[in-house]
């Protein structure tokens, strides 16, 4: 199918600012689904609230645009009810790790077969540039005019510690490898997390004098390095990208099928 066959053109134009990275993520999600030859009717996209959450409305899947932070809780209900459906959960960094932090760690702990795509732009964009748990110490935001004193999370570390069986990180600069990572995450049986560093030139970029969207993407090129590379040893400031964990562990809905068999006395 053509890319446009996945898009609800009726609902265009989208709401994203010029230079926003979310469109790159949406494009690559479509390409991953296309490459995997998945049927649109087998895909449910569940999102919360925020710029990133709007992806769900634009795509021609079963789409559920829910409450701020709660996408994974809604998605858990959908997946438990219909385990054969593939569930994609696009989230923002505030959506996933602040207001939705509890649901995030528990979905990871259960290892329920959902694909969480976290667009980390380090800011609350839709409300106009407040600091998020990913902004980082010393950064500027509309609610940190004198400098942010909040320490940041490492989403990949958090996901791994909580029990996610697939954890990866990529950036909007690395668009081609992002497709492959998304394909693996979607096909992985268990809770998969893909953190995507994505630029918000309008708020995070402007507040922190990071230049244009292109400048911010170039910084993803120079500021990241493949997992386990020598460069990281020389420069600990570099952010690792690639797949951190990909393990076969008991998946929640499969485990629950066994509970049903036990309850019914089927052995």
């Amino acid at each position: 199918m053509a890319i446009r066959d996945y898009i609800r053109e009726r609902f265009m134009p989208h709401i994203w600012c010029p230079g926003c990275g979310h469109g790159i993520v949406m494009n690559n999600l479509i390409r991953a689904v296309e490459n995997l030859e998945l049927r649109k009717r087998d895909i449910v996209m569940v999102s919360g609230i925020g710029c990133s959450a709007r992806i769900s409305g634009y795509l021609d899947f079963h789409t559920l645009h829910t409450l701020h932070g709660r996408a994974l809780a809604f998605a858990t209900g959908v997946k438990m009810a219909r385990p054969e459906l593939r569930i994609l959960v696009p989230m923002g960094d505030g959506d996933a790790t602040a207001i939705g932090g509890n649901h995030f760690i528990h979905a990871a702990r259960r290892n329920i077969d959902l694909t969480a795509v976290i667009m980390n732009n380090r800011i609350y964009g839709m409300t106009g540039g407040q600091y998020s748990p990913l902004s980082g110490r010393g950064k500027a935001a509309t609610t940190a005019p004198l400098g942010n004193i909040d320490q940041a999370f490492d989403i990949a570390d958090l996901a791994m510690s909580a029990g996610a069986s697939f954890v990866a990180r990529t950036t909007t600069y690395h668009a081609v490898s992002m497709i492959k990572i998304l394909e693996k995450a979607i096909m992985h049986k268990g809770f998969s997390v893909v953190e995507i560093l994505t630029q918000c030139p309008t708020y995070f970029g402007r507040k922190n004098r990071l230049g244009s969207a292109v400048d911010m993407m170039k910084a993803y090129k120079t500021g990241t390095t493949p997992v386990g590379s020598e460069a990281k040893k020389e420069d600990p400031e570099l952010i690792e990208r690639g797949i951190f964990v990909e393990e076969d562990r008991p998946e929640y809905c499969t485990e629950y099928e066994n509970i049903i068999k036990k309850a019914m006395g089927v052995h």
Binding site: V46, R70, T76, G77, M80, A81, L85
Partner: peptide
């Protein structure tokens, strides 16, 4: 989360 999950399940 419980409330959200039952809404998701009902939708199916």
């Amino acid at each position: 989360a419980s409330m959200c999950a039952i809404i998701g399940a009902s939708l199916t």
